[in-house]
Nucleic acid binder design. Structure first.
Length: 485
DNA sequence: ATAGGGTTAG
């Protein structure tokens, strides 16, 4: 029976499924290496030193999956080793993957065990080794552990550099522990490492986020003493901090100062937008528009962020005509397109419960060949799907797809539509949607797949059941991978 | 390294 085979394929795929197709490709290249790794787990780096061949993220991720879950130690040592190779560099994505796979946040000790193993086995350890470890803690957002790593370096006769201090300082700033961050910054000076612009920007951001504006401003003096001149980025951080705490007069003074200073301190679109946004939030639309004029007068073009907060504001006040005029004006500046602005307007209208107008504008965009952005599409499709117009939602999805729309809509929406279509027995659309999902490699998340299986069990539509079963079979294993990491 | 509405995929 068809239904039986679905649930059987579901449960067997939980137990036996083998992560990714790439594993197969990679086994051909490196199966030996992996087997060696697993046999001589004590000598990972020595085994790896015999490895010759291209190292890429696919390969690295394949090995990591092989080591999961019982060989975390080996997996991490492989990951660190890979990060040391000159022809390869882990991307943040890969750090994140390793971090999630081996649950570094829950098991921070794993990495200390690796460091201890290096010591016990007299492995060669360099500054770069510690950098890879630090980056793993960065992904895991573990400030204390990252600091311990920094403290371990001298035991290996190594010294941290400015980027490593910056990484740890950043973690403490994010955590809001500005005292430790400050101690670390001072410590840099003691060991002949000078804080750089990145250090100061992080510190300024950190101080602002905990409301220590005076300390943030004091950085101006500290950095100048060290021969590091403040630039627009640092100024912008401080300006943002002042805005956030509501002192708009002081914010405008600082903006003045930046304009007068000029050069590398000259405000840019981020600086102005930050001020405009705060005025909008406070309901001071007039002041926001003055800042807009001011930036345009200085040849600084508003971008999507600038435009969208003003559009949002006009929309909230019901000043739609002015929103349209504003759009014409900012688009002329060249920093933002009609597509982006109208998309923002669609989003704002919907947020202000002017759904019908949002839909009208959205339709107008499609008919005029303007591509709405991901958020606007997601919002409109969701509106249709949850408002009992599932088929319309699907058709909209299909229409957007046919426009060659590359940026994706919220991936949950495909699942939501699929469930809706199945529930209402729209077999033809459901089958088409599944095919689209397969083509776009959209994964079905576990709560949705349960609903689908339930629906199929009850369905008398044999054609639907046959088609979906056939199609779902091929991506159920992927679902299992996704829910496991 | 600065704003933000959730910005590729790996």
């Amino acid at each position: 029976m068809v239904l039986f085979s679905i649930s059987r394929s579901l449960s067997s795929s939980v137990r036996f499924q083998n992560p990714k197709v790439s594993i197969v490709q990679f086994s051909v290249v490196s199966g030996d290496i992996l087997n060696h790794l697993q046999e001589n787990s004590g000598n990972v780096e020595k085994t790896l030193s015999t490895f010759k061949g291209p190292l890429d993220s696919k390969f690295v991720s394949g090995v990591l999956h092989r080591c999961y879950p019982s060989q975390s130690h080996t997996g991490l040592r492989f990951f660190i080793w890979a990060g040391l190779q000159s022809d390869y560099r882990h991307t943040p994505y890969m750090y994140n993957k390793a971090c999630k796979l081996f649950s570094i946040s829950q098991n921070p000790k794993l990495l200390f065990d690796v460091i201890e193993a290096y010591r016990a086995e007299r492995c060669s350890v360099t500054v770069k080794t510690f950098k890879v470890v630090l980056n793993l803690y960065k992904q895991a957002k573990l400030a204390d552990e990252a600091l311990l790593v920094l403290r371990k370096m001298p035991e290996f006769g190594l010294r941290a550099d400015t980027t490593m201090y910056n990484l740890v300082i950043r973690l403490f700033c994010v955590k809001g522990d500005m005292n430790t961050a400050e101690t670390l910054m001072k410590e840099m000076g003691l060991i002949d490492l000078y804080p750089d612009m990145i250090t100061y920007v992080e510190m300024a951001k950190g101080f602002c986020s905990v409301g220590r504006l005076d300390d943030a401003f004091r950085l101006f003096e500290v950095m100048k003493e060290h021969g590091c001149l403040p630039d627009k980025v640092l100024y912008s951080v401080l300006l943002h901090g002042i805005c956030k705490f509501g002192n708009m007069e002081k914010a405008l003074e600082l903006l003045d100062e930046m304009e007068k200073e000029g050069g590398s301190c000259s405000p840019n679109v981020v600086t102005y937008t930050s001020v405009i946004q705060r005025f909008c939030e406070k309901g001071q639309t007039l002041e926001a528009l003055e800042v807009l004029n001011r930036m345009e007068a200085r040849n600084c073009s508003p971008n999507r962020v600038t435009a969208s907060c003003l559009i949002e504001r006009f929309c909230l006040e019901g000043r739609l005509n002015e929103a349209y005029k504003l759009i014409d004006k900012v688009v002329k500046g060249g920093g933002v397109s009609y597509e982006e602005c109208y998309s923002s307007l669609v989003v704002s209208l919907k947020r202000n419960e002017r759904t019908e107008e949002a839909e009208k504008l959205f339709r107008k965009m499609l008919d005029g060949g303007l591509k709405p952005d991901g958020l606007a599409c997601s919002i409109m499709i969701k509106e249709l799907a949850s408002g009992g117009r599932v088929v319309d939602g699907y058709e909209l999805c299909d229409e957007i797809e046919k426009m060659g729309y590359l940026t994706s809509i919220d991936s949950d929406l495909y699942s939501l539509l699929l469930v809706g279509l199945c529930e209402r027995n729209h077999s033809v659309e459901a089958v088409k949607l599944v095919k689209l999902m397969l083509m776009k490699k959209i994964k079905l998340k576990s709560p949705y797949i349960d609903s689908i299986v339930e629906i199929l069990k009850k369905s008398r539509d044999e054609e639907l059941v046959n088609h979906l079963t056939e199609n779902l079979k091929s991506f159920i294993p992927k679902v299992i991978i996704d829910s496991s990491n």
